[in-house]
Design a protein around this nucleic acid. Sequence first.
DNA 1: TTCCTGACGCTTG
DNA 2: CCAAGCGCCAGGA
Length: 115
Amino acid sequence: MKFYGQTIEKEDFFNLVYQICRRIPKGSVTSYGAIAKALGSKTSARMVGWAMNASHNSHEVPAHRVVNRLGQLSGKAHFFPPCRMQELLEKEGLSIKNDKILDFKNHFWDPLLEL
DNA sequence: TTCCTGACGCTTG
DNA sequence: CCAAGCGCCAGGA
């Protein structure tokens, strides 16, 4: 596949995403877009979601700490059971209401700050 | 090949 | 953070 102007294996792309996910501090969250931006901002946030899809098998990634730009648990349906995502986040000290993280901006972690 | 579908996000109104 | 529209890019039918 092509990424940022050059051809790479898609597994390499996945690994870049997973690498960032594993850096998310416990109790913090980030967004698909923020990760995409950290990867060079040339790729759309959809690709990050795509990578998360593949992460649920054979990869240890805290996917529950990745939400959309509004702090909504847009990917909860892909957990088993679906309520699992919310439970994991609440266990890390976050508050969720209507599939949305309360005080999202205050718990947001930007991957770019770690570069 | 074309058309549709997303764990998305920015800009406008 | 109301909603419609557009851009994004890989996969599947």
